[in-house]
Design a binder for these strands. Sequence first.
DNA 1: AATATAAAGGTCAGTTAAGGTCAATAACTT
DNA 2: AAGTTATTGACCTTAACTGACCTTTATATT
Lengths: 149, 149
Amino acid sequence: MNVTDVIVCAINELLSSCDGEALINRNEFANKIGCAPSQINYVIGSRYKQELGYLVQSKRGGGGYIKIIKRQFKENDLLIHIINVVGESLDESFSKALVNSLLSENVISISQAKIMLGATSSQNFKGLSLALECKLRSAIFKSMLANCF
Amino acid sequence: MNVTDVIVCAINELLSSCDGEALINRNEFANKIGCAPSQINYVIGSRYKQELGYLVQSKRGGGGYIKIIKRQFKENDLLIHIINVVGESLDESFSKALVNSLLSENVISISQAKIMLGATSSQNFKGLSLALECKLRSAIFKSMLANCF
DNA sequence: AATATAAAGGTCAGTTAAGGTCAATAACTT
DNA sequence: AAGTTATTGACCTTAACTGACCTTTATATT
């Protein structure tokens, strides 16, 4: 069994015993497992992605922590589906279309839609290459959806 | 819970029980909390900034005090204030503080706040320089606010 | 009135305590 | 052999906290 798997097990156990919220101190946790602290980041980055329904929050400095939250999506599987449909790149017109379709299906409200359109507007990315713009838009779009519910 | 959080709680309690005005004697207050007097300044400086809608007044010498006043914004004034306050660069922690401030003043709803937090999360900007990240966040943040109403 | 002293609050650099990133390497898989 | 996944450590950023020293103000003394 990989160290990575051990970490995954430990986090999952925390998640299920703590109502979907695992709160850890990175150093202490790494020490208990017996690995480098940075491996905790590797595991979180590779196994607890947004598209899998997880949210990760953290704070540095004194009293710092990492929090992993498992989302209950229920009937909003549509969200997961859309998050998966959006790959690593998203252009403005497709992003607009997605927002409009979410709106017309009443998954999001008009005010939410407006914010999303603002966030993904190409105006925000002036000066960047198109490839970078689309990559960022994809990350931002998925992040908004994942955080939204 | 950090000492800083204890101080924040104590100040917030004073603010809400005293009609938006917290009046303290620094030494006495620090003594009650159990910290160095200068930590009070640290907390005020980092949590009760003018940009977040607070005014801080103080007097030294005998009978000295520190007064923290929570500004009351009318309607869209807070919105205007925030758009003005955000320059060409915005780091994650300040952006979070601004969103929370909009939320607590009921200028935006919780679901709007979540979308904004998702859109401005540093996770979206991995691989970029800090300077570019903050520049983009500023553009996105202002764009969301501008579209929002 | 001028001066000295005491009683506040302010500042800032330095310390400690976290978590984040990334490139290099090792260990699997196919 | 090539490609993917795991693992690490050196270096970075952020946050909390403190104490030595500074400035301001009020009050007591001469």
